[in-house]
Computed example of a mutant assay.
Amino acid sequence: MLKVSVVLPAKNEAGGLERVIPALVGMGIFDEIIVVDDGSVDQTSTVASGFGAKVIHHPYSKGNGAAIKSGVRAATGDIIVFMDADGQHQPEDIPDLLEKLDEGYDMVVGSRSGSSQASVGRWAANSFYNRLATFMVGHKVEDLTSGLRVVRAKKFREFLYLLPNGFSYPTTSTMAFFRAGYSVGYCRITTLKREGKSHINPIRDGLRFLLIIFKIGTLYSPLKLFVPFSFCFFSLGMGYYLFSFLASGRFTNMSALLLSTAVIVFLIGLVSEQITNLMYQGTVSDKDRNQ
């Protein structure tokens, strides 16, 4: 019988934990519940320990991803369930995700419906991320940023060093699983309104998520990101060269700059592709040595 651990990253989520932990305990299917207190200043730790959860303390806030990593290192289960501590995720959805995992998947993600998104802006941003990820991996990605997911612990730990300390751990872990050839599945879920105030800053984290778009490309398949940019510069260079040649019969510095940029961008993509391959080959080699 496989052991199942639940990891809840929490920062000032005492209110949400008062509802989430009793619901998890009442289900009776989890071997341990781990709450990672990421520098909270409320009663998060007291509430969690009061309901019997194992509590890991961060002396100061390190970020959602750092809390996830601390929880994974402490978890003893063969399967790990990740969910938010703010009350958005419903524990009743977890059995469906576990059942899907038993079908042969290595990670199963709770896919939110459009009505479950926090706002229209958040829905539009997530839809863009999903389309970009689908293009990168060649498989339909239904929800790239969902925090409710179940994973096989041994395989998830292979990518701990890749996970950022901020809010983008779902994105990075999903792309890493696809890149390694592991199976990723989805189950439809409905999320509730969160307890308390969100820790996501629209401007600061919006810019951060914009950087994630480029990180997705360089993490999974850099050439898929760099080749279109290279082709754009090449097309502009050739188009400007054709225009200047027909207009004045000469090859201009601007044409040379655009064509040179196209070559440089392509070469950067080629080098990035090789680095990415070496990175994942290292992961596979470490896995083979541990077997």
Rank of each mutant, 00 (worst) to 15 (best):
P9M: 03
K11V: 07
G15I: 08
V20L: 12
I21C: 07
G28T: 00
G28C: 01
V35A: 02
D42Y: 02
Q43W: 08
T44M: 03
S45W: 03
A48T: 02
S49K: 11
G50L: 06
V55D: 02
V55H: 00
H57N: 11
H58N: 14
Y60C: 07
S61A: 13
A66L: 07
A67S: 15
I68S: 09
I68F: 12
K69V: 14
V72H: 08
A74F: 06
F82G: 02
M83W: 01
A85P: 02
G87L: 00
G87M: 02
Q88N: 06
Q90F: 05
D93I: 02
D93N: 14
L97N: 04
K100R: 13
S111Y: 01
S111H: 03
R112W: 02
S116V: 00
A118M: 04
V120C: 03
V120S: 09
V120G: 07
V120W: 06
A125W: 01
N126Q: 10
S127Q: 11
L132W: 11
A133K: 00
T134I: 03
M136P: 01
K140I: 11
K140N: 07
V141F: 01
D143K: 06
A153P: 02
K154W: 10
Y161A: 12
L162E: 12
T172F: 12
T172A: 11
T172N: 08
S173H: 00
F178Q: 01
F178W: 04
R179G: 05
A180M: 13
S183F: 03
V184R: 01
C187Y: 06
R188Y: 04
L192V: 07
K193I: 12
E195G: 05
E195I: 14
E195T: 15
S198H: 03
S198F: 06
P202N: 07
L210K: 09
I212H: 08
F214G: 14
F214K: 09
K215E: 15
I216N: 14
L219S: 08
S221K: 07
S221T: 13
L225F: 12
F226E: 02
V227H: 08
F233Y: 15
G237R: 06
Y240G: 05
Y240A: 11
Y240C: 07
Y241Q: 13
F243L: 15
L246N: 14
L246W: 11
R250A: 09
F251V: 14
F251A: 09
L258S: 04
L258H: 03
L259A: 05
A262T: 05
I268M: 08
V271S: 14
V271L: 14
Q274R: 11
I275N: 07
N277V: 13
Q281W: 07
T283Q: 05
T283P: 02
R289E: 12
N290G: 09
